[in-house]
Amino acid sequence: MSIAADLIRGHTDAVILSVLMRRDSYGYDINKTILLSSGGAYELKEATLYTAFKRLEDAGAVSSYWGDENTGARRKYYTITDKGKEMYRQLYSDWENAKCIIDSLMYKEK
């Protein structure tokens, strides 16, 4: 798990953008989506999540707004910008590329 997590860590931004490509979302919901999509195998550390939000926002890939929940604490929603969509497409094709290369480099024992 920890080794796999190390491998995934480099793709944190892509994973988050992937959730936001589908819909606007907030921290806990994003992480839960990641957890469910991976069948419970992967979850981001919260520190990682908030650091990534800040990085993506500084890079202009996402923007945020406060939800208008009537009850309890207000949620901070993130929405992907055009720049972020562009970035996601790039990250996606980078990953396809890398996956292809690594697959062809890894020898599978018979």
Partner: peptide, 13 residues
Amino acid sequence: DLKNEIMSNTLDK
């Protein structure tokens, strides 16, 4: 801001 964000997410969790 960060506090409110973390607060709402943690309470949601």
